[in-house]
Simulated assay, not measured.
Amino acid sequence: MKLLRVTTVALSLVLGASGAKATDWTAYTYSSVSTTAAVKGMTRIAEKVSEQTGNDLNIKLHLGKTLQIASSDITQATGDGIVDFAADYFFSGSVPIARVLNLPLLIENDAEWTKAYAAMEPILKEAFAKQGVVYLGGYRYPSQVFFTTFDMKSLADLKGHKIRVTSPEQGHFVEAFGGAPITLSGSEVPTSLERGVIDGVLTASAGGAKNWHEFLPYNYRFPVNYGNSVIIANADSYDDLPEKDRQVLSDVVSAEGPAITTAFNEDEIVQMNKQRDAGMKIVEVDQSELPEARRKMAAYWEEWAADKGPEYVKALKIVREAIGK
């Protein structure tokens, strides 16, 4: 009789554990192309989280344009609980202080990025928390460089040309050298190039140029800035998870964010070679242009921060001290 009672209790515990309801999350990414390093990375995150939580947390990823969420509204949609989990490249409207990391020529190489990002991370967590989301990590694209319909060999060649940018800071750089910045969604770029609405774009070989290269015969590899994405979760959805599942999610994102960055850097070389082989004229950066461009932009960094307020001045100072600029 005693053995029967023990067996019954044990069985009820097993059934109770196995009968626990799984948590299903809706995830969204701005990218609509499943073959990009970004989407592959988000897919790995979903798969690993499901596996490592024993299917307690299942994440269904939706690609860009498959949900009625504008690219510029992803952070807000996550905070509002429309989605539980997301990758957002266009978060700067919701969390503008994060644009410190995207200021032209402030961060110029991998080592500087690593130091600057680590210094900014506490600020990012606090800023995203105010939007009702939990900042979990992120990844970075390669340097944003010029792809154009006109032969570009120096910054002087920008004069009079219309360039698609993804931030006001990129726009300032274009204007500083005589160009006209234009903001468009990614889906508008091919048609705008065909119609002459724009004469070029700032992107990476492994970024927009991967899809638009047929419209862009020239590439001047002046490194204006880095673009980055954040990986975030709705705060309520995150808080409702068991602690062990939160830890799994955080650990997986922490590992996959840098892996996506590495994949992008590797793909940058592959895509650049493919684009060259397909006939794109690629011109390496003229090193003599860098000192003057840095001088112009350094003054802009300070003006930009001062105009936006003390917390921006503080954030810029933290980043500059971290990278020694």
Rank of each mutant, 00 (worst) to 15 (best):
Q275T: 11
V283E: 01
E256D: 03
T66V: 02
M297A: 06
K296G: 03
K65M: 12
N265Y: 15
G196K: 14
R276N: 15
L3S: 02
G16W: 09
D307W: 07
Y117L: 15
L63I: 02
L316P: 07
L249E: 01
I282F: 04
I69V: 10
K60H: 13
E311N: 09
V83L: 04
D236S: 02
N273C: 09
A293H: 03
I318G: 00
V252I: 03
F147V: 06
Y28M: 04
P258Q: 10
Y135F: 03
S167L: 09
R5C: 05
A20H: 08
G200K: 11
M152H: 14
K48T: 02
A22K: 09
Y141G: 05
A127S: 15
E51A: 02
M120W: 14
E188A: 12
L57Q: 02
G171L: 04
W301M: 10
G137M: 00
L67F: 14
K115M: 14
P242N: 01
E266I: 15
S12V: 09
T78K: 03
V319G: 12
Y139C: 09
Y226G: 05
T36S: 08
E243Q: 13
I232P: 08
S192P: 07
V285R: 11
I69W: 05
Q275I: 07
S250E: 02
G227D: 06
A27V: 06
P190C: 07
A37V: 03
I123P: 05
A77M: 01
G196R: 15
M120G: 12
E289P: 10
Q275D: 10
V248K: 00
V9H: 03
A38Q: 00
D307E: 12
K159S: 07
P310A: 07
D24S: 12
S94P: 06
K274W: 06
F147T: 03
E112C: 11
I59M: 08
N102H: 08
I74V: 11
R246T: 02
I69G: 14
E311D: 05
S32V: 02
E214S: 08
L57K: 00
E321Q: 13
Y226T: 10
A20W: 13
M297P: 05
D24F: 12
A70S: 13
G186C: 11
A263T: 10
P122K: 14
A278S: 06
S143H: 05
I45G: 00
K281L: 10
D24N: 06
Q68T: 05
T191P: 04
W25G: 01
L202G: 02
S92K: 12
S154D: 15
V174I: 15
P168K: 12
S254L: 00
E268P: 14
I69M: 13
K162L: 11
T191C: 04
M1A: 09
G208D: 15
D240L: 01
N109Q: 04
Y117R: 12
K162E: 06
R164C: 13
K48G: 01
G19V: 04
M152E: 14
V283T: 07
H213I: 13
T23A: 00
I123R: 14
M297S: 02
R221K: 13
